[in-house]
């Protein structure tokens, strides 16, 4: 385990779920790079153990976000490489420092690049359906406005948490006309749109997208009515661990999400905060590296650094606290 302050600090923030997915990727990279830079280790082996100790500490508290895990894959693969090729401590420090620099530069450019690609798909005078709240989508819409396009956005509440209402407020602030309804209205709203555009929590190896719950039925409606579905997401959200069979852990809907001072105590509350949209319902994934068919996302997965040792660690760790939600309660039946 690591005592390094930057690592302890970010572990605390992860434990408290203070960071969203993209941010936690950036911060984990920074913390590990700082640990490496400040390390007094005199040989590569000692530095490797220090970094691995920090990674172990982070894995205990890491929420199931793809970006920080991908960062850890990257750093861990550098360690494996250093050990296999007998690199010196300074060589290892240099390579990780360079990774951190690249990551910073990448994250500054990726969003602008995505917004430019995705906003090109919004036609003048068109209607766009989006689900819930996504920073990437908001940036995309703002980019389209800057290009002088007039368009309308349809969005629903996105219970629980009403993230859709925040989208409505932010878009209105940007001068965009918004039409808002309840989640149950997707059957009426989506067919009125020219395109559907959503962000994602993660993209899995088979090309499916893990998004806020309700995205899957909306995509099903879109597909049925021939409305193109675009998932707008940077490649750090491509979940490397899904290559080895892991699925993103999803938080369940809480009792208080359904019954805020309401009747009905005693009923079990079912469901999760995210659902999975299969690749056959997605027309394209828009990434900073280009627009691709979801079924082809392995091409991008294959170019990312994957650590076998991290894969093994995850298999043996408590990282996957899969609480399979089972509707059929045999004790009840």
């Amino acid at each position: 385990m690591s005592n390094y302050p930057a690592v302890c600090h970010i572990a605390e923030k992860l434990r408290n779920k203070e960071l969203h997915a993209a941010r936690s990727g950036r911060e984990v990279m920074q913390a590990l790079a700082a640990l490496v830079a400040d390390s007094h280790a005199t040989d590569a082996q000692a530095l490797c153990s220090e970094v691995e100790g920090a990674i172990d500490a982070l894995l205990v508290v890491l929420p199931p976000y793809a970006p920080p895990l991908n960062v850890i894959h990257l750093v861990m693969s550098r360690i494996e490489e250093a050990q296999a090729n007998g690199k010196t401590v300074n060589e290892l420090k240099a390579v990780i420092n360079e990774d951190a620099e690249n990551y910073r530069a990448w994250s500054e450019n990726a969003r602008e690049r995505i917004a430019s690609l995705a906003s090109a798909l919004i036609r003048e005078g068109s209607t766009v359906f989006t689900f819930t709240l996504s920073e990437t989508i908001i940036i995309t819409f703002r980019a389209a406005v800057r290009q002088g396009k007039t368009f309308k956005v349809l969005v629903t509440e996105s219970r629980p948490n009403y993230d859709g209402l925040m989208t409505a407020a932010q878009l209105a602030q940007a001068g965009i006309c918004v039409e808002l309804s309840v989640d149950a209205s997707i059957g009426k709203l989506v067919p009125c749109a020219d395109i559907m555009m959503v962000g994602a929590e993660g993209v899995m190896a088979n090309g499916s997208a893990v998004c806020k719950v309700g995205t899957y039925p909306a995509a099903l409606v879109a597909h049925t009515h021939r409305v193109p579905v675009y998932v707008v997401v940077d490649t750090m959200k491509f979940d490397l661990t899904s290559l080895v069979g892991f699925s993103l852990d999803k938080d369940p809907v809480q009792t208080t999400d359904v019954f805020a001072q309401r009747h009905g105590e005693g009923a079990k509350v079912a469901g999760h905060l995210f659902d999975q949209t299969p690749p056959e319902l997605i027309d394209a994934i828009i990434t900073e590296r280009g627009i691709l068919n979801p079924k082809d996302c392995y091409t991008l997965f294959g170019s990312m650094r994957f650590s076998k040792r991290l894969g093994a660690k995850l298999q043996n760790s408590t990282y996957q606290k899969v609480e399979k939600f089972i509707l059929k309660d045999k004790n009840n039946v």
């Binding site: 809907v253 359904v258 659902d275």
Partner: peptide, 28 residues
Amino acid sequence: LLTITEMQKYDIPVAVSIDACIGELIPQ
């Protein structure tokens, strides 16, 4: 939510969720 009350009246086990969860729940 009225369905919950009605089912409980007749001792039928009932689970409730938000509308957005249909994609997860109905297949089960």
